[in-house]
């Protein structure tokens, strides 16, 4: 909690901090999802997260990355498959138990999904709604320990003193920090992170990813992180899962990602052509001036 809230872009996932607490795992088994009667979006995707493991999920637009995270939360109901959180199948839970399970899965959203007209503090405290009574929350009488924790989290994510600012006054990076604090105050066992850097500039993207991965290490959280930016995924996620047309086509260490695998995940256009928009300076890991040859930024 006491560490410097200003992120350092250079910090890597190897820089572990002390980890404690019980270990939680998430296992997604042959998940099938379709919207209405349309084409299936997920056709039997399986991913298992070991305790404390940070997994990056990559894939082209429409490959089913967001759907997969939303199906784990049952924001989309899966057609079939199992979602095991510490061995309990979430797909079988009734409403009340499901609410409790959702509380244990902290989610960080693409474009932050904050309530723009509410204050930073109110947005963070919405993370406690799973355990706060309706009338207490409606009258904004949150438990003092939750408020204390919220202040602590704001310090941790680098938003000290901004608790009364309205969220629509914040920058993109600040909003995502509020989203992170909101997810953490749920006391999640696993983090689901959906495109946390979408619409952020390269430097801010790196800061946000640094913050997320640091926090996972501090709290011993396993995390499944959707990323459209392959260099960013390689840099921050020790393990990468590649999704294509609703199926897992790669699952292995980030170091094993090569052109052949990228072709498998993204199709032939991903490799070989100059990919200027992909080779963002922040994501290239100092590989010299001629990067941008392919999607990896090498």
């Amino acid at each position: 909690m006491g560490s410097d809230p200003q992120d350092r872009p250079g910090v890597r996932h190897e820089l572990g901090v002390s980890v404690s607490g019980p270990e939680h795992s998430l296992s997604i088994q042959s998940l099938h999802v379709r919207y209405g009667r349309g084409e299936p979006v997920l056709s039997g995707a399986s991913i298992a997260l070991a305790p404390k493991e940070i997994v990056g999920l990559i894939g082209a637009s429409g490959a089913g990355k967001s759907t997969l995270l939303r199906a784990v939360q049952r924001l989309v109901e899966p057609e079939s498959g199992e979602i095991l959180l510490d061995g309990v199948d979430l797909t079988k839970l009734a409403r009340t138990e499901l609410r409790d399970a959702r509380r244990r899965l902290g989610m960080i959203f693409q474009e932050h999904a904050l309530i723009e007209r509410l204050s930073v503090m109110e947005n963070v405290l919405t993370g406690t709604l799973g355990r706060t009574g309706f009338w207490q929350s409606a009258r904004r009488r949150f438990a003092p320990e939750d408020v204390t924790e919220a202040f602590g989290l704001l310090d941790r994510v680098g938003l000290t003193g901004l608790e009364d600012s309205r969220c629509d006054e914040l920058s993109g990076g600040q909003k995502q920090r509020v989203g992170i604090a909101r997810a953490l105050i749920q006391h999640p066992d696993v983090l689901l992170v959906d495109e946390p850097t979408a619409s952020l500039d390269p430097a801010t993207s790196v800061r946000i990813m640094t913050l997320i991965t640091e926090i996972c290490l501090e709290r011993g959280l396993a995390a499944l992180i959707n990323l459209h930016d392959v260099p960013l995924a390689r840099r921050f996620c020790p393990r990468i899962v590649g999704l294509k047309e609703g199926e897992v086509v790669f699952d292995g260490p980030a170091s094993a990602l090569d052109d052949e695998i990228l072709r498998r995940v993204y199709g032939d256009d991903a490799v070989g052509a100059p990919a200027g928009h992909q080779g963002s300076p922040a994501g290239t890991e100092g590989s010299g001036g001629t990067d941008g040859e392919n999607i990896l930024g090498r």
Partner: peptide, 24 residues
């Protein structure tokens, strides 16, 4: 999006209305 975020944090229908809908 914020409504979905509230659902994902385990909020009840009433809380979703109070925090997600009414402010908007």
């Amino acid at each position: 999006a914020p409504l979905e975020a509230l659902t994902a944090s385990g909020a009840t229908w009433g809380s979703r209305v109070v925090f997600g809908v009414l402010p908007q």
